[in-house]
Simulated assay, not measured.
Amino acid sequence: MAQDIQYETFANLQKFMALGFEAVGVPTADAQTCAQVLIESDKRGIDSHGVGRFKPIYIDRIEAGIQNVITKVEVVRETKTTAVLDGGNGMGHVIGTQAMQMAIDKAKEYGMGMVAVRNSTHYGIAGYYPIMAAKNGMIGMTGTNARPSIAPTFGVENMLGTNPLTIGFPTDEAFPFMIDAATSITQRGKIEHYARIHKTMPYGWVIDENGEGVTDPDIALKGLVDGTCALAPLGGIGEELAGYKGYDYATVVEVLSAALQGGSFLHQLSGFDAHGKKQPYHLGHFFIAIDVNAFTELSAFEKTAGDILRALRASKKAKGQPRIYTGGEKEYLAFLERSETGVPLNPAVRDSLTAVRDKYAIDFKFAWE
C-alpha cells in the first residue's frame, strides 16, 4: 500500500516553524532564522534535515532543557581575518548564520575569513552556509562535529560524528555548485527518515558490535545511542572500498571543529554527562569564506566553473543511465519541482507538527486539514 503523503507549501511550513520556535521561547528574529535554515533543506529535497527534525531534534531538546532558546554569541578571540565564537549552547542556526556572515564580512575586506565556533547546537543543513557565501560571490566551506556515530576503520565503536565537510561556490548557471555530505556512508537524519517510513536500510550503512551490517533502522537508531551500532565511514567497511578515506576526512572535521576553538570532541559530544543525565551537546563548527574577486574576476571564475560542470555532464554515460549530474543540480531540480507541488509530508511528520501546534495552542491550519 502506498504511503499517505500530503503536501504543504514552503511559505506555510516556514511560517509554522517560526511560530513554533517562538512558542517555546525563541525570540522572533531568531525563530525566523531557524525556520529559514530548516526550510532550505526541504526546498532542496533533503528530507533528512528539514521540517522532519523540527520537533524531534529542536523542540524536544529545548523542552528537555539541553538547548537554550536565547542565543548569546560571545567573541572569544578575533583578528582581521579570523575569529573564535562561543555559542553558549543557543540555537545552532542563529550561531551558524552569524558566524558565516562574520567570515563573509572579513573576506570582503581581506580576501579570506575563517570563524571557529564552540558550544553550539545542531545548525541544520550544512549547505545553507556555503550558499550564503556563494550568493556573495565567494567560495564557502563549513564543517561540524556531532555526537559519536562513525566507527574508525577496523573498529566497531562509534567515535566520530557524521562530520560533514561542505563546500559551495558560484557558477554561471542558475544554481551554485554544492557538496554537502556526511563523512559517513549515511547519517542519522536519513536513518530517521527510513524509520519514519518503515523502510529497510541498505546493507553496509550501519554495523553492529561484531562488524556485521544492520538493516533495521529502529535497531540502528537505538544502537547508535547505546553504543551497540556505528555508522560505516564514507567508502565502506574496512579498506577494500577505501573506508579509511571517509574516516580520515571525518577526523579532519573533528579536529577543525574542536582544536581551533578549545571545544568538545568525540565522546564529550554524546549529550550525556558522567551520570547518564542529558546535557547540551557542545558542538563545534568552522566557517570559511574566500572572496573570488581577490583572485580573479568573478564572472571569469563563474564561467570556468560552469564550463567544467557542463563538460562533466556532457561526458560519456554508463549504459542505461539517462544523464550525469553535478553537485547541487539534483537539489536545484528538487527546488523547481517542490516550488510547484509543495513539500511531501508523511504521517509521522504531520503528526509531529500538529502535536506542537496543539500543545502550544498555535493558531495555524495546515493545507491537508
Rank of each mutant, 00 (worst) to 15 (best):
G284R: 06
T354C: 08
L165G: 04
L85N: 11
I324A: 15
I191H: 09
D172A: 14
Q101W: 02
D42H: 11
G92D: 02
A361E: 13
M112N: 13
V115T: 12
T183W: 06
V76Q: 14
E254R: 12
V37S: 07
V26N: 04
L336Y: 07
P130F: 00
P280R: 01
A367F: 00
R147C: 11
G65H: 05
S270C: 03
I66D: 02
E78T: 11
D363F: 00
I237E: 06
A230R: 08
G45R: 10
A305Q: 07
T81C: 15
L309M: 15
G143R: 03
T296V: 13
L345S: 02
D363R: 09
L309T: 11
Y360H: 15
E212T: 10
V206K: 04
P322Q: 11
V69N: 01
F295T: 03
N89A: 01
G246S: 09
D363T: 10
P164L: 04
R44T: 01
V214H: 07
T326I: 13
S184Y: 02
G227E: 09
N346P: 08
G25Y: 07
R61C: 00
E173Q: 15
H275E: 09
N89E: 06
F10R: 14
A311M: 12
Y249M: 15
L85T: 05
K359Y: 02
G236W: 00
A314G: 14
G320Q: 09
G246V: 04
Y360D: 05
V343S: 08
T121E: 05
P164T: 00
R44E: 03
E254C: 10
E240D: 14
L234A: 15
G25Q: 09
Q101L: 05
H122L: 03
N136C: 13
E329N: 06
K365C: 08
Y249L: 14
F169S: 13
G90C: 04
P148Q: 11
A107Q: 09
G140R: 12
L13Y: 04
A126L: 10
S48I: 01
Q36K: 15
L165E: 05
G213T: 04
T183L: 07
E173M: 15
I131M: 14
A29Q: 10
L345I: 07
P164C: 02
A126G: 15
G243V: 05
I237T: 08
E192L: 07
A314I: 11
G50H: 09
K15N: 13
H275P: 02
R323C: 12
A146E: 04
R357Y: 11
T215K: 08
E8P: 02
E331I: 08
Y58H: 06
A182P: 03
K316C: 00
P347Q: 08
A11K: 15
G111R: 04
F272M: 11
I5Y: 07
L345V: 01
D363L: 06
Y128W: 12
Q36A: 14
V225K: 14
V214S: 04
D42N: 15
V37A: 10
Q14E: 14
V349H: 09
Y194M: 11
F364Q: 04
I197F: 01
F169H: 13
M138Y: 03
Y203G: 12
H282T: 03
P322L: 11
G52A: 07
K222G: 00
A126H: 06
E173C: 12
T171E: 14
N346T: 01
V76A: 13
V343A: 10
